[in-house]
Structures are given as C-alpha cells and as structure tokens.
Design a protein around this nucleic acid. Structure first.
Lengths: 204, 204, 204, 204
DNA sequence: TATGAATGAGAGTTCATTCAT
DNA sequence: AATGAATGAACTCTCATTCAT
C-alpha cells in the first residue's frame, strides 16, 4: 500500500474494472493506462485475477472491522443502527470504484475466494440483523423481520454503487440521513401502535 | 422468438449468463447445453452479444409497461406506491435469471444499447419518484426527498437478485409486504409529529 | 489414428520435436508446417503437451506388448534374448522420430505421466533381466549380473536414436545381428572356461 | 572460471539443467538457487546459452584428452580398450550432471557449436573404432565391425546417464568391469572358433 | 558488485464467427 | 437445419536481457 507503482496499478485497475468490467479490461489496457509495457506489470502483480482479489480483499477489510466496533458499543440499538448505516453509505460513496468492483465482479474469483467473500458478506449482514433484533428485544423497534429489515437497508445502501456520484447534487451524508429518516421511522414503535399494513387497511 | 429451439437457446443463455456471467460463458457452453454444435447456433442467433441484448430487452419490457399502468390508476399515492413495489419485487423474484443478467451484465452492451437501457431505467425510476411526489403534494407522505425515497425502494428491491431464492423460506409476497410495512411507515405522516432525525437528536 | 489431419499433425510434431526438441518447437512451428493457423490446431489437439504425451504413449505401446510375447515363448533363453534384441533395434530404427522424442523429451511431461513412463520402462527392462536370469539358471549363460547385462543391451540399443539413419550404410538388421554376435558371445558359457576378467588378469 | 561465484553459478546451472532440462530452467531459477537477483547474474555470465556452452565444453574437455593418451599407450588393444571403457564409464559416473546436460541438451546450442560438439564426439568414437580395428589386425579380436563394436560400447556407457546413481548399489567400477567382462568376451577370439551367430544356428 | 525496474518479443491458448458441405 | 473445419484476433503470461542507480 502506498508503494508507488504498485498502488498506481491497483488504482488504475479499480478504475478500469469499474468502467469496463473485469473481463472486458485487458492487461494491456491496464499497462497502457499506467504507462508500462504489458510484461512489466508482472513485476507488481501475480496475475490479473490476483489484482481483482486484492481489490476485493481491500473492500472486505474496509467494512468488516469498523462495523463490528460500531455495533458493539453500549448504545441504544437505534443509534447503533444509525451509525452502521452511515458507515455503510459513507464507505461505498467514498470507495465507489472498489465497491463497484467488489459487488459486480466478485463472481470472477475462484470458488474458494468467492466462499470467503460470501462468508464475509454474511457476517456483515448478520451484524445488521442482530442489531435490529436487539432493538426489538429492548422495545425500541417494532416486531419486524430482522432479516428483511437488514436486507432493505443493505440493499438500498449497496445500490448506491449504481447511481451515486461524488459530483452529484447529493452528498453521502445527505443520503445516509435521508435513508435513516425513512428507515428508523419504519422501524420504531410509532405512537399509534398499529403497523403500517393495518394502517393501510384503515386508510386504503 | 417463441420458436422451440430459439427460445430454448435464449433460456439457456439466461441460465448460463446468470451462473457464470456473460464473458465467462462461451458460445461453446451454450451450444453444449442446448445440444447443438457451435456453428449451428448461428442459425438462431446473430451473435453472442445480440443474445445478451435480447435478454436485457426482455427485462426492460417486463417492468416498463405494467408500472406505467399502475401509477396511472386513480388511487391514493400510497396505494399506487404499494402496488408498484409489489410489482417490482414480484417481477425480479419471478425472473431472477433475466434480472440478474440485466442488472449485472448490461455493461457488456454497446454504448448505444446501454443508453437505451439507462433511459429505460431512468423512466422507471421517475415513475416512483413522481408517485412519491404526488403523495407528498396530497398530504399523504411527509416531505422527504422523492428521489431518495425512490432510490431506497428500488435499491432494496433490485438487491433481491443477489439474495432471493425461490426455494428460500421467504416468498416474494412476504418480502414485498415486509418492505412496504417499513417503507410506508417511514413515508407516512406519523401521529407523533417529529421526524426520525429529530428523535435521534433527543435519544442519541 | 489415421484420421487425416490429426495424424498429420502428430507426425509433423514428431518430426519437429525430434529436429528441434520439444521446448524449442512452438505451436506456431507445427501450424506452419501443417498449413494451418495456430488456433486451428486446437481442433485436433488439446494442447502442446498432450501432443507430446500422445507421441510418447505411442512409443510405449510399440515395445511393451511385443516384448512380452517374445519372452514368453517356449524357447531357449538365448533365442528369446536374440529375438528381444532384434525387436528392440528394429523398433527404434523404424520409429526413430518417436523414440528420439520418447527418450529425450519425456522429462517435459507432468510428473504423473513421467511416473507412468518410468514404470513402463522398468517393466521393459525387467523382461530383459528375467530372460538373462533364466538363461543363467538353465546353464545357457554364464553367471553375470542380469541387471548389467540388460543395461548393456538396452543402452546400446537405445543409443541408436543418436546415430542411426535409415539412409546410412548399416541396416537395422545388420546392426541387430552384430550386436547379438557380440552380446551372446559374451554371455554364453565359453569353451575356454575362464571369464574375461580373469583372462585380463593373465594378459593385462 | 574457478572464481567463487562464477563456479557456483556454473554448478548450479548443471544441477538445474540436469533436473529440469535447459529450456525448462529459467535464469530466474538459477538466480534464486544461487542467491542473487536475476540481473546480477549477468555480471558472471554472458547469457543463458553461453552457460550451456560452457558446461558442454567442460564435458568435451573431460573425455577427449585422456582418451587420446590411453589409446596411444604401447599396450595390447584389449588392454587399451579396457582402459578406455573404464575411463568412459568413470567419467560419466563421476560427472553425471555435466554429461546428462551434454548428452541431452546439446541440441539447444547454435548450429556452429553443435558442429564442434559433433566433431568432438566423432573423434572420440573414432578412437574406440581404431582400437578395435587394431585389435583385429593384431589377431586379438575377431573380425567384427569396428564401428558397431564401438557403438555398442559407447552406447552402453553413455546410457549410464539415464540410470546410474552414485547412491545406487552398483559402483562405477563394478559396472565398468561387468561391461568389460561381456564386451571383451564378445570381441576376443574364442577357443571354439565359431561365431555366436553360427552357434545360434546349431542350438536354436 | 548488486539491484530491480523495465523491456519487447514470443509463448500457448481461447474464442466468436464464418462457411463449404 | 446442422455440421465441424478453419480463421484470426485477442488474450494472459513468461522470460532472457538491459541498464540506470
């Protein structure tokens, strides 16, 4: 990390993989973009796939550790969930390249590597689920499906890689707060008591 | 289209593109799976990319028309939005193959085709946004960002292609209702008055 | 075998591998020699190494079976040994290309394949050894080391690949008979009684 | 030559060329084995091929001079031949690496170098032939083909590189004596007078 | 003396596509 | 409609060698 050419190659690969996709990006493309001969790249990389693996590993490191710390803090579930969502959105927004590659190209890895990635994602998701669960247990949240609540949040967050642009009108923070505004309202025990579905019955 | 072999080839391509990705699936793979020689495939298809284009076109047809009808109905915004989400979730859950390919492989199309697809998605998203907007205008919903509300819903729904399984414990309907339960609560003007953000202030 | 282009490619490979060696012969060389594009070769071969493996397998088939039949015949050991040597010499002389590749390039095979080849050669050698042994047991031969007698015969025979030429003055038959004339004399119980070593003592 | 590192590189190359073959051994392999960077090797060698040439030249020196002295001595042909064979066997057994490379990899040299090597081998072989011839002229040996007698001896001896092991049960001396025991018996004028072929007639 | 970055040619292989049969 | 031989371009990767430091 930070070792000049090696890092430049990695970043270039992220950029090209994001723009063209992993398969559609040739080693030649990377070499051209970085100003080296094709063969020279191999002083820095073991192979094209290892490059992808490194990018994806970087993506995995980025989220796992921080999230574990967040959800372990002695705070109300709602606050922990809020922080988790902010972290999630920020992480993707600030590393769009890496997460685009991560989310879209991980299937190009070897089956073993894919298993590691899948396991990592499962753990990440489980942290969200668990936090929702705790919120329910402690009476902060309504009795929703923790699984689906987590999937909704993660899905909405991950989808950012498809549309977020740092140059866009919306900042990552604004997005996170807007999402939370909707999420948490939906989760929290409302004053009226009934769930949205039953409210729909009444009003629909 | 619809003629025996031709349809079989298309479906086989969907299955293989979904499993292995577009680039990682060779014409030979498709020929093998369909029981033809590679050369014989070309009596039915123009090329590999055209096959992808047809799959993606099928995906686009699937959602556009129906959604326009839904949001045009003379119903409360909340109800229209609910139906739209149900449609969205059902469509993806019932055509996982097509939508996986659609969402993941559309970057392999020619730039012109990609533009068409992007435009189609933009229109689709606009229908959601507009409906949220109308809900706000008519006092059904809180004053949230229609753009972000739409993105949240679409993101959560699209993400299904990554985790939904027809054999799983959760049916598409259950998922759609659970999502709506959370979405709509978040959108609706709550009894308590304060927004989630300000509540967070108090409790955080 | 005999299937037109496939066989032609194999024979061309034998010729080129013999002339230039396996590593120094490129797939391009073979394609050029056979009048195809490099890529077209791959309709007939799985890879360059498989080509080598096939050549070597052909070499192994050539000797193993026939020799087993020869040494199993109800004949004096001397006669069986004579026939074995004639077979060995003829086989190499008539398939110089194959045996040159076999003897010189087998190290380019995978370790597993090399093991198979080594085992095949060991069996072949064992047949020679056993025949010498039987000749000794039955009083036809002197009490020499069967191992070394076999190695001498096989070595001299194998070496043919280095110098024999079908256009040369000496025919394979002449060579075989001359070798036998020397071999068998050395093996047989001579009239004079003493072995060469002790004679050397006397005269040296 | 003889200067520490240079000699170490040469010996390492011999070892690796023998184990893996010349083409399959990369300059990197040699550098690794000798504990230098690839680029540093070029302070000691001109190139990979020159390394091979030096090894082969060393092989040629090893046999040529000594053999000339042996066959020039005023001794019976049989004794000179015996000494020549002992020398040949010892030389190969004691320099297995060099002679394996010599015999197996000389085709990787330039055509000019190959010519020199071929000429050297021809001279070597001629010394054996001439000695056999002289033995025949002087009545020590039977009237065999000197060429084939030489080929038999050289072939059996050279073949050692394929099977001899310093750790094996048989010492180089034992092998040489056993070979001689068989060779010379075959060559010498036997008491019985008839040649092996005619004996075969009688007994076969 | 030693490094290691860089080269550039060439290797084996894959693959979408064409076309005569 | 179906074949399968053939193409030719592109691909990833290797490697002997050079050279500024």
């Amino acid at each position: 990390m930070g070792n000049g050419k090696g890092q430049e190659i990695l970043e270039t690969a992220v950029r090209l993989f994001r723009k063209q996709g992993y398969h559609a990006t040739s080693v030649q493309d990377i070499a051209d973009a970085v100003g080296l001969q094709k063969g020279s790249l191999y002083h820095y990389i073991t192979g094209k796939e290892e490059l992808l693996a490194r990018i994806i590993a970087e993506g995995m490191q980025g989220y796992a550790q921080v999230l574990e710390e967040i959800v372990a803090q002695p705070l109300p579930a709602r606050e922990r969930l809020a922080r988790a969502v902010r972290h999630h959105v920020a992480m993707i927004a600030e590393n769009l390249g890496i997460y685009t590659v991560f989310l879209r190209e991980r299937h190009a890895l070897t089956p073993e590597q894919q298993k590691l990635v899948a396991e990592s994602m499962r753990r990440y998701q489980a942290l969200f689920e668990r936090t929702v669960e705790e919120g329910i247990e402690q009476g902060e949240f309504r009795a929703v499906s923790p699984r689906l609540a987590a999937m909704l949040m993660l899905g909405a967050g991950n989808w950012l890689y498809q549309w977020f642009s740092p140059e866009g009108r919306l900042s990552a923070t604004e997005i996170a707060e807007a999402f939370l505004d909707l999420f948490l309202r939906g989760l929290e025990r409302g004053g009226g008591g009934g769930d949205a579905a039953s409210e729909r019955e009444r009003s629909g």
